[in-house]
Amino acid sequence: MDLSRAPNDRKLYLCKWYFRAGFIFLPFVWAVNTIWFFKEAFRQPEYDEQKEIRKYVIYSAIGSVVWAVAIVAWVLTFQLNRADWGEFADSISFIIPLGRA
């Protein structure tokens, strides 16, 4: 999909769609939305839909950053406390690393 050739209302539709899709635990989609539409939102000569696209891009950026912080925080907590949590940590572990001889 080439954005530069798409009509403006199509851009807005896509941006909005991506933004809405991001709510179902899809921070990656938000990140994609931010990067994909960044140029459209900030680097293009102004047009009618741009304001709204900009809004969605900013919200998506905020959302993905919040998610990223949350994920990093959780992963750090998990990695640091895994050994201490004992059985509970094992029960939520996808991969339990093997000990080295």
């Binding site: 635990f25 899809l26 990656f28 994920i71 998990f78 572990s93 996808f94 991969i95 690393p97 093997l98």
Partner: peptide, 24 residues
Amino acid sequence: LLRAYNIPMDYFTALLIMWNFGVA
């Protein structure tokens, strides 16, 4: 991949990664 590099990971993160990766 995680097993090969012996990286511990919890289910939430794994599922979130898979969900995001797959849907996108």
